[in-house]
Computed example of a mutant assay.
Amino acid sequence: MAELTPAQIAGLKLARDGDLYPQAAGKWTHENATVTYAKTDRWKERPQKIKTVTAKTLVDLCEHGFVERRNLTDDGTTDTYGITMGGKIWLLQNK
Results as ranks from 00 to 15, higher is better:
Asp41Ala: 14
Gly87Val: 03
Thr57Trp: 01
Glu68Ile: 04
Ile50Met: 08
Val53Asn: 08
Ala10Asp: 15
Lys27Pro: 01
Met85Thr: 13
Ala10Ser: 15
Ala25Gly: 01
Leu72Tyr: 10
Asp60Gly: 02
Tyr37Trp: 13
Val53Lys: 08
Trp43Asp: 11
Ile89Phe: 07
Gly76Met: 14
Gln23Asp: 09
Thr52Asp: 02
Thr54Val: 04
Val67Tyr: 03
Thr54Arg: 04
Gly65Ala: 08
Ile9Thr: 13
Ile89Asn: 07
Asp74Ala: 13
Glu45His: 03
Lys56Phe: 00
Lys27Ser: 12
Thr57Gly: 03
Lys44Tyr: 08
Val35Arg: 05
Val35Ala: 09
Tyr21Gln: 11
Glu63Tyr: 10
Gly11Cys: 10
Gly11Ala: 14
Glu63Leu: 13
Lys56Ile: 12
Ala55Lys: 09
Ala15Asp: 08
Thr34Asn: 05
Leu58Phe: 00
Gly87Ala: 02
Phe66Arg: 06
Gly11Ile: 09
Glu3Thr: 13
Phe66Thr: 06
Arg42Gln: 04
Thr77Asp: 12
Leu12Phe: 10
Phe66Pro: 05
Tyr37Met: 04
Gly86Tyr: 05
Tyr37Glu: 09
Tyr37Thr: 07
Lys49Gly: 07
Gln8Thr: 01
Asp17Val: 01
Thr78Phe: 03
Lys88Pro: 04
Glu63Met: 06
Thr77Ala: 09
Asn71Phe: 11
Pro47Gln: 12
Ala25Val: 00
Thr73Phe: 13
Ile50Gly: 01
Tyr81Thr: 01
Ala33Val: 07
Lys88Thr: 09
Thr77Tyr: 01
Val67Thr: 07
Leu92Gly: 08
Gly76Lys: 13
Lys39Pro: 06
Lys13Thr: 12
Asp60Phe: 03
Gln8Arg: 05
Ala15Asn: 07
Leu14Tyr: 13
Thr29Asp: 00
Glu63Cys: 06
Ala10Gly: 14
Gln8Trp: 00
Thr78Leu: 02
Leu20Gln: 10
Lys95Phe: 06
Ala15Trp: 00
Leu4His: 03
Gly82Leu: 01
Val35His: 11
Leu92Asn: 02
Asn94Lys: 00
Pro22His: 02
Trp28Ala: 06
Val35Trp: 11
Cys62Met: 06
Lys95Ile: 01
Thr73Tyr: 08
Asp19Leu: 12
Thr40His: 11
Lys49Leu: 07
Trp43Gly: 05
Lys95His: 12
Trp90Ser: 08
Lys39Asp: 10
Ala33Glu: 13
Asp41Leu: 03
Asp60Ser: 14
Asp41Phe: 05
His64Met: 01
Glu45Asp: 05
Asp74Arg: 15
Glu45Met: 11
Thr36Glu: 11
Arg70Leu: 13
Asp17Ala: 14
Val53Met: 15
Thr57Asn: 07
Leu58Gln: 03
Arg16Glu: 14
Leu72Thr: 03
Pro47Glu: 11
Ile83Arg: 03
Ala33Arg: 02
Glu3Cys: 10
Ala2Gln: 14
Asp17Lys: 14
Thr80Ala: 10
Ala24Lys: 14
Glu3Pro: 09
Thr29Pro: 05
Val67His: 00
Arg69Leu: 02
Asp19His: 11
